[in-house]
Amino acid sequence: MTARRLLGAYVAVVMLFLALPIAVVIPSAFGEGNALAFPPQGFSLKWFAAILERPALLAAAANSAAIAAVATGVSLVVGTLSAFALRRYAFPGRGALMALFMAPLVFPAIVLAAAIAMVLAPMGLVRNFWGLVLAHIVVVLPYVVRTVSATLAEVDRAWEEAALTLGASPWRGFTSVTLPLLRPGLVAGATFSLIISFDEFTISLFLVGSGMMTLPIEMYNYAEYSLDPVLAAVSTLLILLTTAAVLAVERTVGLGKQFS
């Protein structure tokens, strides 16, 4: 009994520790004072309204959203095709290729960042939208390959073969049988990809510059000269958005399955 209570207490402490930043940030966004303070003084929504008066933050948010969307779109197509090749066909070097696709997951981000910057700089792709998109694809692709190939493992070859014998060309069989069955993996992969790209800091730091900022880096720059609750307001919005996205995925396809 005491062991159980001890475990319960331990879990509570860990949860508290994990949730603490959120517990601090969200109330701070609703304060009336001019400085980032906890506990906040009074209640107001003015800092949310103030976001609209920070064009640099808005522009960076738009960039981040566009980068995340394009990187996710490309990753879904490339990742699905890669997952297909890796799962369905045996070919020499398959293991190595699979390791290569997963490498960005385990590589130190800073090393990857330096390497990507060294490749993109001579090509003129620094401080460039497409350079950031390319870099983000490298980062998010493993997540898409992973979620899609996990789902693909559940798609029986016999279903695709049945479609062929019933008169479906491989393409029509793919769109009418395989793709709908891959939907949970695609939705989960896309969600991860959007969140990770939007939140990406280390690699983007090497590639941004005046005129091409991403939101996390713009927020960091902002914090360097003014620590007002606008940052807390932006953070609160991001938390809400992320939570909503994860909940939506959980409701539709069950996120837990993607980690089993």
Partner: peptide, 20 residues
């Protein structure tokens, strides 16, 4: 002739019914 042009019907082991 590829399978989709052979005009055959096939019943698979474990039926291979489309689950969705």
């Amino acid at each position: 002739v590829p399978p989709w042009r052979r005009n055959i019907g096939m019943v698979f082991q474990n039926y291979a019914l489309f689950p969705h």
